[in-house]
């Protein structure tokens, strides 16, 4: 009985969400009726361009460049941010010292990182990766440090009273305890990453989705710009719902089992 009610509630919620998207697309379609395609292309025109790009295989190369950069950037950020975060979580002095630095870094507009990276490394693959790292490392390290600091002190004391070694504590107490915060950091980080990488490619790279957007701007191909935007949004949603959430659910499966 409860399950049936839950299922009905889920369905209603999904319908509400879907109606929001329908309204958005409807608004877009109405706008396209009043403006020429070069200003606002219609929904069907954009999806037609998207499918043509897909079928002609034009999408794959910029997509692979962008995805590689995101994976490299996020991977390096996890290593760097993870190391700093764990250290700051374990040592209060380091935590206090990095807190203001992180606040300063977080307030630097992402475009600044791109500009600095172009000056330092020139145009190419490095500026997007550099921008991702600059953005994601503070988020991951602060989340992890906070996660470790928030670990139930009674569990720490229990481990201490049983004389458990730090390596065992790290693997069985600290890491599982911060899984939730790690994945929420990853979710926030990835969300920003897709947006920043495109911007960084737009200004500082000769390849990738951002570069394609630059060409679309240059050639006044608004439908192409919209098509690539759909691609970036899809990538963001796919990482969240097909990668991060399933991994998070798996890692925190002990919470749902009742």
């Amino acid at each position: 009985m409860d399950k049936a009610i839950d299922r009905r509630k889920d369905l209603t919620n999904w319908l509400k969400r879907l109606s929001g998207i329908v309204v958005l697309f409807g608004f877009w379609e109405v706008l396209s009726l009043f403006f020429p395609p070069v200003i606002v292309p219609s929904v069907e025109r954009v999806f037609l361009t998207f499918s043509q790009l897909l079928l002609r295989g034009e999408l794959w190369l910029p997509l692979s460049h962008t995805v590689t950069r995101v994976l490299m950037g996020v991977g390096l950020s996890i290593l760097l941010g993870g190391g700093v975060g764990i250290l700051a979580g374990l040592v209060k002095g380091i935590y206090e010292a990095i807190k203001p630095v992180v606040v300063i870094i977080e307030n630097i507009p992402p475009i600044v990182w791109v500009i600095v990276a172009i000056i330092w490394f020139g145009l190419g693959a490095i500026p997007p990766v550099f921008a991702i790292i600059s953005l994601a490392v503070p988020i991951i390290s602060v989340h992890l440090a906070q996660g470790i600091r928030d670990i139930d002190p009674s569990l720490r004391e229990m481990a201490h009273s049983f004389n458990v070694k730090i390596s065992t504590k790290l693997y069985h107490l600290y890491l599982p305890a911060i899984t939730g915060t790690f994945f929420s950091a990853l979710s926030v980080g990835f969300g920003l990453t897709w947006r920043v990488v495109v911007m960084a490619e737009f200004f500082g790279s000769m390849s990738g989705i951002g570069n394609q957007l630059n060409w679309a701007r240059f050639n006044l191909e608004t439908d192409k710009a919209f098509a690539y935007t759909i691609l970036v949004v899809s990538l963001g949603l796919m990482t969240e719902y097909l990668v991060i959430r399933p991994l998070q659910n798996w890692a925190t499966r002990w919470r749902i089992r009742k």
Binding site: L155, S161, N163, T168, H172
Partner: peptide
């Protein structure tokens, strides 16, 4: 070697009953 039984069970919520005991035996 001392063992402490606290007022609350203080079990690792992400480990099973067996794993919680194995945790203190690891080292």
């Amino acid at each position: 070697r001392l063992a402490f039984i606290f007022q609350e069970p203080r079990l690792l919520p992400w480990r099973t009953a067996l794993e919680n005991i194995v945790f203190v035996l690891k080292d």
